[in-house]
């Protein structure tokens, strides 16, 4: 059984938050889903099965043939919520406290 603290910690790891008022509900649902998928524990797998890869699997394409520099800049910058010229403005990344 998951505790409220564990769910809070998972949420922090995943960079979301669950409001205090909903924590109870989310913890319960988390447990129910986990109990359901844990049926998989019963399944016995033949030896050596894990190494087999499907013939077509999800891969990133090779990082090659880039578009011309600047070709997409305006469109991408237009979507920035905060910007200075073509720079994306964000808060500082770490604190010194």
């Amino acid at each position: 059984m998951a505790t409220r603290e564990e769910v809070k910690k998972l949420a922090a790891l995943a960079r979301i938050s669950v409001p205090e008022g909903q924590l109870e509900k989310f913890t319960k649902e988390f447990d129910a889903i986990l109990a359901y998928v844990s049926q998989l524990e019963e399944l016995k797998l033949p030896k050596g099965l894990k190494e087999e890869k499907p013939m077509l699997r999800n891969v990133f394409r090779a990082d090659e043939n880039p578009t011309a520099p600047g070709a997409w800049t305006k469109k991408l910058v237009d979507a920035f919520p905060e910007k200075e010229n073509d720079y994306l403005v964000v808060k500082q990344i770490i604190t010194h406290e």
Binding site: A11, I16, S17, I33, L34
Partner: peptide, 21 residues
């Protein structure tokens, strides 16, 4: 965290929690 908490509905949040686990 502020953006993701406000932007995702309950089902994405549930699946993010399970997926992270």
């Amino acid at each position: 965290v502020e953006t993701r908490a406000a932007g995702f509905g309950d089902e994405p949040k549930r699946r993010i929690l399970i997926g992270t686990f």
